[in-house]
Design a protein around this nucleic acid. Structure first.
Lengths: 308, 308
DNA sequence: GTTTATTTGTGTCCATGAGGCACAAGTCCT
DNA sequence: AGGACTTGTGCCTCATGGACACAAATAAAC
């Protein structure tokens, strides 16, 4: 059965259900807000389309035929499903309130997510957003968070993952700095330049690079180590050395000419490099507050993609 | 949710299902035989009606929103039910063949049901009708019959019962007979008249009468006993005495003036007096041959009611 | 018996709205 | 940069669903 053949019959089936439940055409017509003659025609049309007589009817009594009973049962199911579809939609908009716990990394939260969360809360004033800013990757089940946002090319497989964006690390220096130093054309050149590292782990001074063909690792040195991207941007702009920045942190500085991107052909592998992942525990029927949050973030990530 | 609000949305829901299953508007439009713009508009209309965004869509990709997923599930159910309704109707007309076993009492079968069965077999040439004519009331389960037709005001409660008509017993005599005897005005008068009994049971000569207010029993006598209604009609017409006939047996004779109905104010209780019952075993999904038989008999009984 | 009210069904007419068409805007691929 | 394909919108046309009037049938009322 093709859907295009089916569609005009759907309304007729709904009318059939009303007729059977009301007991006659006239009552059904009143309930449907149309005239009895319209009801009569629709039922006839349905009978013609299905090829069977559904109702045994005289002017004074109405009854389903035996063949019609089965058809009616399915029609009733059909209407009930449709009603449930509508009810599901209504309840999806009605109660969007409660607590929503979200974990996100510091830098991303401050520079990218902040305006999103503000707008979200304005859209849904009855939702209370509890934002846990941390660079640790929390466990949604044990750490009591509903959503986990993190930057990673390998999202947690046990959780649903929605890619809502991507962060690239850009290696930068200030124009002043470059005027006084040799412009690096290969990762190895960085050995001889002061570099600004994160300094969170012991290996943070081992920068791993890759391009289409090769991989290489460079051990860099520098006098300023800090794990705050905006402060690092400031340090780079001040000419303290070469440093890596998330693209969203670097973008304005590059546009303003305060930062010069380096080694564009190479990718810098580090913890702040990869897809922005929105992850949460799988469940068929989640609360509305969760659903609207996912939809909102997805929507915004699409809009951001369009803008860029 | 009123049905009249729901109806215009049903087709839109079907379109939504097609869109999601096809993956984009254009493919869905091709499948539905309409233009993509029409699809776009219907989806928008559905979203407006439901008050939620169902699909997150750009020009290159399409995805259900979280809120939309639940709505979609119900819409899919809705379409599936509708398809089942259509399929049920198709199969109801496709295979109407096989053996149908019907038990009916002699007199009714010969004088009333015979033309119905003939017409039924002409309508459904692939059905084989096995008619068991007997005045015993058979057990549909143990005696291997699908339908049981009998005359009784108290149908078997374990079976589904469809009243397809009514038989009244009429007490008659011939004009010749009445010319030579006193016209009875009360059941008691029958004691002094020759009466024609069925003679099947020992108590068949005890005729029980009732009217609005009273009941009475008369023990009658006569020289001719026979349990075949048409032969009994003949005996009455020949002036052998007063006898009871089913109304359908007496009708022609009364109209032709060969029979005179007696004691019209009284009802004669006997085995051939009551509703004509079509009974069969309850089952939700019976074979098509059974369904069309029920529908046919119901339909004919309605037409007979209209004629009379 | 007659009337009255209510039922289903069938014409005819008309307004609503669904869909086609053309086009715009956006996106991916080459 | 250009081509192919996407979704979305304005405009117009025509099919269709429904109102209306009426007929036929039936059950109840009187």
């Amino acid at each position: 059965m093709d859907t295009n053949k089916l569609m005009p019959l759907l309304a007729d089936m709904a009318i059939l259900v009303t007729v059977v439940e009301q007991g006659n055409f006239s009552k059904a017509a009143r309930k449907l807000g149309i005239t009895p003659s319209a009801v009569s025609r629709q039922i006839s049309r349905l009978e013609d389309a299905l090829g069977i007589k559904l109702l045994q009817r005289t002017t004074r009594q109405l009854a389903l035929t035996e063949s019609g009973k089965i058809t009616f049962d399915y029609c009733k199911q059909m209407v009930e499903s449709a009603e449930q579809a509508v009810n599901a939609s209504r309840s999806a908009t009605s109660t969007v309130s409660g607590l929503l716990r979200v974990a996100a990394p510091k830098s991303l939260a401050n520079q990218v997510l902040r305006p999103l969360f503000v707008e979200f809360l304005k859209c849904y004033p009855d939702i209370q957003l509890h934002l846990k800013v941390t660079d640790r990757i929390l466990d949604p089940i044990h750490d009591g968070v509903d959503f986990l946002i993190h930057i990673n090319d390998y999202p947690i497989e046990a959780l649903v993952n929605v890619k809502i964006g991507r962060v690239e690390q850009v290696l930068c220096a200030s124009p002043d700095f470059l005027a006084n130093h040799t412009l690096p054309t290969h990762p190895d050149d960085l050995k001889y330049l002061p570099c600004i590292c994160l300094g969170e782990n012991m290996t943070d001074n081992r920068w791993r690079f890759s391009n289409k063909n090769q991989k290489t690792t460079v051990e860099v040195t520098g006098s300023y180590l800090l794990n705050h991207s905006e402060m690092r941007r400031d340090a780079i702009e001040q000419g303290f050395g070469v440093g890596s920045l998330p693209d969203y942190t670097a973008q304005k500085g590059i546009e303003a000419g305060k930062l010069i991107p380096l080694l564009k052909d190479w990718h810098l592998q580090c913890s702040y490099h990869g897809d922005i992942c929105l992850q949460y525990v799988q469940s068929k029927y989640m609360p509305n507050k969760n659903r609207v949050f996912i939809d909102f973030i997805k929507q915004k990530s699409l809009e951001i993609q369009q803008d860029s």
